[in-house]
Design a protein around this nucleic acid. Structure first.
Lengths: 133, 133
DNA sequence: CTTGACATTCAAGTGTACTTGAAGGTGTAC
DNA sequence: GTACACCTTCAAGTACACTTGAATGTCAAG
């Protein structure tokens, strides 16, 4: 299969596929006599895996690690499970940070409603923002 | 005041200050006879404003907009209030997305615990991740 | 008078995940 | 035979907010 077919099948740009090859996420495929990349269907699973990993926020670097373990012949289950758990911790922290930020912004928004622009001194640029810090 | 003093005062790198000037967030300061930047204290408020804005997730582009309004002689209150409200909407969406992602990851993590690596077929790289998609 | 901390400019690098552009070759339908 | 979609490589660009490096100049202390 040519690169365009694969791309259409998986829903990813041909440039992304070449980029993944370049980045060590996909093996270099066979070539037709004229030099076109000639994939076999297995690359579709590999791309599906990459997409699934990205969808849960794993980086290409992390996915490359998983793929290398698989390519070595081992099952990457344990490694993937660890990545997922780390990801969960990251997300919990991110949500916490965002909640706090949201609270601050709500306060700012309330302050803003109560502010009279005519009385806002120019030297601090905008008092609304600095009321919280 | 020289750039290093300002930087120390506000807690920002000298390179960042030069970058802000370059980017139109800070006016070009006076120079000493030898060519050193010679700031007056007002730049400290301006940098404090930039830091406060960044702390609530505003981009330098947005802050530049606010500063330009202030430099035109107007009070940017209204504009800042709008930016804050937009930011709040963004954050609510982000939190929603992250919650959903977290839920998916929890499911994956549970699946992972139940998987036997020995029975994981190599062709899909790692079945854990693709169980959700 | 030299050392060392500080300053200057300009260009280029950082990280992430790609995309875009240039200049060209290939495959197939009409 | 020619149009047109598709493929190739390689370099550079994108967004964001800076940092780093090179080569050089300045200031205060000892």
């Amino acid at each position: 299969m040519r690169i365009g077919e694969i791309a259409g099948e998986v829903g990813v740009a041909t440039s992304a596929i070449r980029f993944y090859e370049e980045s060590g996420l996909l093996p270099a495929p066979e070539r037709t006599p004229s030099g076109y990349r000639d994939y076999d269907a297995s690359v579709i699973d590999r791309l599906a895996f990459i997409r699934a990993g990205q969808a849960v926020g794993l980086t290409l670097g992390e996915l490359r690690g998983v793929l290398h373990i698989r390519d070595r012949g081992d099952a990457p289950c344990r490694h993937v499970a660890d990545l997922i758990d780390t990801r969960i911790e990251d997300i919990d922290q991110r949500i916490k940070d965002l909640r706090r930020l949201r609270k601050d912004l709500s306060t700012l928004s309330e302050n803003a409603a109560a502010f009279d622009p005519a009385e806002c001194p120019p030297e601090s640029v905008c008092r609304i923002l600095t009321t919280i810090v």
